[in-house]
Design a binder for these strands. Structure first.
Lengths: 209, 209
DNA sequence: TGCTGTGAAACCGTTCACAGCT
DNA sequence: AGCTGTGAACGGTTTCACAGCA
């Protein structure tokens, strides 16, 4: 099996996630085998692209037949590291941070929000509606390793984003999702994905004319 | 002036937003004129790309000199439709919807959240912490035109996303930001930008290995 | 036969490099 | 002289088209 993970573009990883979702759908329908063309037709994808994306990581299909659904799904789950539950911490217990802590999106089979951090003394010691504890942000260096958190969500004001990223990185977090509308220069070995909601709104405004 | 808006890629509109931010910074420093090279150097961009992006919409600079900062900023604001305040409505008064309604990102000079909509009778008639009214989702067709909302935010569960998009579209909303983790096929003439937080988490998981 | 896996071609966005204007 | 605006080169990604295998 070839394993050239280093070559997977962002677009490819994005499509693999969507592919996994599609596989869940067809699996629920009891379909055991499916061709790339059928997947493409049903979910609005391109069949060659499905095959090319998968080819980056090995040979998953059977010529003349297609893909065995449970098999491919299991291999994708493993490949993407979604075959276990990763602890997530959120820094910033404002509206957005608490919304995510209680969200089903962040608390499925693959992810679980184990703690929030904040600097506001009135919030520290409390819990979100669904029971996630709010801890003191100054304890990130102690609590994050204790909780085994692998992913950090940065939901603090723009001014605090850089130092939050640093604190999480020092605590061993290698992957972060930032909602701060400011560019982040991640420390070496750390991946930060920024979701800038202002930018999305501005794009919409632009295209409204 | 050339106006070939139809050719602007998503990447270009994204960069124009960032360029506008950069211009605000240099304007605050009292700089009146700046070259594309200086902008590139200071904000980690590529000078040729700045010029190419701008060239799609006309000639903004002065050869041998650079760009006049207030001038370029004003023209970008107009170009992107950010020179006025657009009313925004949010459908789904859950944690995420309320968080956005109260967020500074959604309530600046260019955007203002004027109402939330929900189907939950206990929420309808109430207000968010910052005072945005929560209205009955069945009244979208009446209230959206009355409020003059141009942008809609879809913060409902995945199952309700398609019908929410339709309801907003029928009410005349031409641009939407969806947080539902499901693909949307927008009606003709409507733009829907989907921000799928699950996908971001999965990308991070993938790259953690 | 019918599909996957994959070279080759087409496409698109980015970067280079310079002609042309101030 | 110096910078913009832009044609040309480049690099990466997507799509095509088919060889090869079940």
């Amino acid at each position: 099996m070839k394993t050239r993970r280093e070559t997977a573009s962002e677009a490819t990883t994005h499509r693999l996630s969507l592919l996994l979702r599609s596989l869940r759908v067809v699996e629920n329908e009891g379909i055991r085998t499916i061709s790339s063309q059928e997947l493409a037709r049903r979910f609005g994808l391109n069949s060659a692209q499905i095959r090319k994306d998968l080819a980056l990581f090995g040979e998953f299909g059977v010529r003349g037949v297609g893909y065995r659904v449970p098999d491919l799904k299991a291999r994708l789950l493993t490949l993407m590291g979604l075959d276990r539950t990763r602890p997530v911490v959120i820094v910033g217990a404002g509206n957005l941070g608490q919304a995510m802590a209680d969200s089903r999106n962040f608390n499925g089979d693959s992810f679980r929000v184990v703690a929030l951090f904040d600097v506001d003394g009135r919030k520290i010691g409390g819990k979100t509606r669904s029971g996630v504890p709010i801890l003191d942000a100054s304890q990130i260096g102690i609590e994050v390793p204790r909780l085994g958190a692998e992913i950090g969500v940065v939901a603090v004001p723009a001014e605090a984003a850089a130092r939050t990223v640093d604190a999480l990185a020092r605590a061993g977090v290698k992957a972060m999702l930032s909602f701060a509308p400011t560019p982040i220069v991640p420390p070496p070995g750390v991946t930060v994905k920024t979701v800038d909601l202002t930018l999305f709104l501005e794009s919409l405004s632009f295209q409204l004319g």
